[in-house]
Simulated scan of single mutants.
Amino acid sequence: MTEPLLIERREDRVVATLNRPEKRNAIDQDMIDALHALCAELEADPRTLILAGSETVFAGGADIAQLRDRDAADARRAINATAFIRVNELPMPVIAAISGYALGGGAELAYAADLRITSPTLKIGNPETGLGIMAAAGATWRLPEIVGGARASELLLTGRILNADEALAWGLVSSIHPAGELLGAAHALADRIAANDALATRHTKLALRAPRQQHPDIERELQAELFESDEKHRRMTAFLNRKKKS
């Protein structure tokens, strides 16, 4: 049986490649189970996560054959949404390297990432209403946070599919790279993250994800912890020493 996720583990990051090429990387129950298992690993041992697909398709959507047979009880279980929330709430940053098609549930998995980069072949959007359902795995609340309410409404109510240039202009992705260089660009982002203090990175992500009403109190408490850390003193001392020598 083919593994739904191909996982490469490094000391400071994990690369998870969606691996259902015969189904255009459609997200089925096995892939959801694999995402949960990976999240459990990264919750226990925090590292940056890079999510990737192939050069032609990130994820073509949820598996329609399974989706067609799901009923109201399945909808209330929020099968995909629960996994994507867990991805979004991982302690360290999540980078989505999106090439080709990212539709429906595939787009919603990308929305759950902290950073999204793409290739010029990107086609991203949520055509769910054309299939008699709605985008219910995070798009209705994540998209307004990412691109604003007006643009989120246009995407979700019309089923419009964005290309790479449109996604960049709308702020849905942060950069475009040739397909063959996309994973390298994701690793370059992970390298920059790895060069920083892991706890400071985790606290920054936590503050970014906190509801508005928790600010500014959450920054004060997280910063207070960082101010007492050995790593803060070590890094600042090294900075001052370098400055003296320059």
Rank of each mutant, 00 (worst) to 15 (best):
D12Q: 08
Q214K: 10
L156G: 08
A96Y: 06
L155P: 00
I85Y: 14
I98V: 15
G105C: 05
A238E: 10
A52C: 03
P21E: 05
R86D: 05
V87H: 11
A198I: 13
I98F: 10
M92S: 14
L18V: 02
A139F: 00
L18N: 12
A136E: 11
L115I: 11
M134V: 15
S229C: 06
R234H: 06
P211V: 01
L122F: 03
D165S: 14
K205E: 08
G104S: 13
G184E: 07
L122G: 01
M236G: 03
A96I: 00
V14K: 05
L42Y: 00
A135T: 12
P46Q: 03
L206A: 15
V147M: 00
G184A: 11
R86N: 12
A83E: 05
A113G: 04
A83R: 05
D63M: 11
R212S: 08
E108G: 11
S99W: 02
E3M: 11
A73T: 14
L131D: 01
S99P: 14
M236Q: 15
P144I: 06
G104K: 00
E89I: 00
I85D: 15
P144F: 01
E181K: 11
A73V: 07
G106R: 00
Q223R: 11
E181L: 06
V87I: 14
M134K: 09
L240K: 13
G184Y: 07
L155Y: 02
L51F: 01
I32R: 08
E41I: 03
T56R: 05
I85C: 15
A137N: 02
L182P: 03
T158Y: 04
R9M: 05
E181H: 06
E225C: 05
R77C: 04
A52Y: 01
L67P: 08
R142D: 09
A65I: 02
A169E: 09
A238F: 02
M134P: 03
A112T: 00
H233K: 13
R68D: 04
M1C: 04
L38E: 04
E43F: 04
G138H: 02
P120G: 14
L240G: 09
D191S: 03
E11N: 11
R142I: 09
R13W: 09
S153D: 12
P4F: 02
S99H: 03
K245T: 15
E154A: 10
V15M: 08
N163E: 04
A83L: 04
R20A: 09
D28K: 11
S229D: 10
E154W: 05
D28V: 03
F84S: 15
H203S: 14
L5E: 02
T48M: 05
N241Y: 10
V173S: 04
L183C: 13
D63C: 14
E145M: 01
S246P: 00
R212I: 14
T2D: 06
P178V: 04
L49S: 10
I85A: 15
F239A: 09
A81V: 05
